[in-house]
Write a protein that binds this DNA or RNA. Structure first.
Lengths: 240, 240
DNA sequence: GTAAAGAACGAACGGTCGTGCTTTTTCTTT
DNA sequence: AAAGAAAAAGCACGACCGTTCGTTCTTTAC
């Protein structure tokens, strides 16, 4: 969806949909209408699932919230499993739009890494996402329930972690991080504080959690940065 | 339940039950039997809820897994809400038993802090807790659903965070941590890596996550420790 | 020895779940 | 204008949900 991002990080292309979309060239008004409602359904599904979970998401409630019939909605998916899988897919695309794209044009390396993490934090507190991060909920809901939904969610988590690792390595190859830095370890720690900030924000409306996460992210990166890395950070207005 | 722990950390006594238990001195065999089955019910409820969530926990399934009647089980609680609340309470007690008690006799300060975090990590991978940490699931399931269950769960999280902060401060007053150390910030970071380790373990059976969490915990504490703090750590066999 | 108390049970309630089948409405094609 | 395809609605189903009721059996109390 975003060429710059896709070129920089080919392994983390989150838009399987756009690639596999078979024939959007048809001018059929019926299918257009169907696609539009389906998109609306899935957007609402992400919303509801962020609050009640993917299992708590019920077809009847989803239909009545949208003012459509249960059977009409159901026909779009054929099964609840399929609805769940497409909801995960839709959430991925929204995630990419709201987290990835805003930082796609930042200077690659440590600056883009920090920007990505802070974009993530902003996504958490976006009032549109009232149920918090869709994936944070989904991870924990399905982490002990084997099946296609869990697989899809786990793949998403893997992509996210890989993206952070990729950015850490990009910073390293640019000579912005000290030699001893372990990319996977640093990515683990960055992901950890972000995830916890979301949790505390949802559970206690604790604004301070974002400050703590930001402090941790900036402190660690300044500590791991070389002189050139620190220069890039301060030049981008990212202080410690 | 554990006098040493209670004396050291009066504000984090997790056993409201034992204190509020009104009259266990009755030798009524009927109530004894009732208490025993109720305990068994709640233990199983924690198990099931760790996998399917507190909302996914259904009275019918719980009853059939235990080989008792749905109505007989239901009579112990009177409502599903009450069952959920008592399940949270039971999970708290199990958490204290499995995480707190094993480190209650460790040397207070930085050594006990590290021991607590690593006891927490062991609790995550305990095969008895096949669904992972009950609370990690519950936090995310209820973080967007106001109500008594969410309140009970949030209180538990607050106690846990307060406990970590308490130990950091205990280490500080013993001169084991550098002057600039922010207890709440450090507690935030420690909780973050532990929580993520549990997530990755559940989602991907990723053993390495525990290693990363342990590395982070030990590295940070060594980095924040004074000479005396480092001496205490190495004396306790906690290397970096 | 009889009455009260408590635990456990089976049956049933109204409601919602996911899921099929049939029909109606809407749009495109000829 | 007629025919046909796709979207949406209507209706009904079996299963399970939390919950209530009346009953049985065992244990304590008078």
């Amino acid at each position: 969806m975003n060429p710059a991002t896709a070129a920089e990080n080919p392994e983390i292309a989150l838009t399987a949909e756009t690639a596999s979309d078979p024939a959007p060239e048809t001018q059929d008004g019926r299918r257009l209408r169907g696609d539009r409602t389906k998109r609306a359904i899935l957007a609402k599904a992400v919303d509801l699932a962020s609050v009640d979970g993917l299992e708590g998401l019920s077809i009847g409630r989803l239909a009545s919230e949208l003012g459509v019939s249960k059977s009409g909605l159901f026909a779009h998916f054929g099964s609840k499993l399929e609805l769940q899988l497409e909801t995960v897919q839709t959430a991925s695309e929204l995630f990419e739009e709201q987290v990835w794209q805003p930082v796609a044009d930042r200077e690659p390396g440590v600056v883009q890494l920090v920007a990505l993490m802070e974009s993530w934090l902003r996504y958490f507190r976006d009032p549109d996402n009232d149920g918090g991060c869709f994936f944070s909920n989904a991870y924990h809901e399905f982490d002990a329930r084997p099946g296609p939904v869990r697989d899809a969610i786990a793949a998403q988590k893997r992509r996210w972690m890989a993206a952070i690792v990729h950015h850490v390595k990009a910073a390293s190859t640019r000579g912005q991080l000290k030699a001893g830095t372990d990319p996977e370890q640093l990515a683990f720690e960055l992901d950890a504080v972000g995830s916890l900030a979301n949790s505390l924000w949802q559970l206690e409306n604790d604004e301070k959690a974002f400050g703590r996460a930001q402090t941790a992210i900036r402190t660690w990166l300044h500590a791991s940065a070389t002189a050139s890395g620190r220069r890039a950070l301060t030049a981008a207005g990212i202080s410690c």
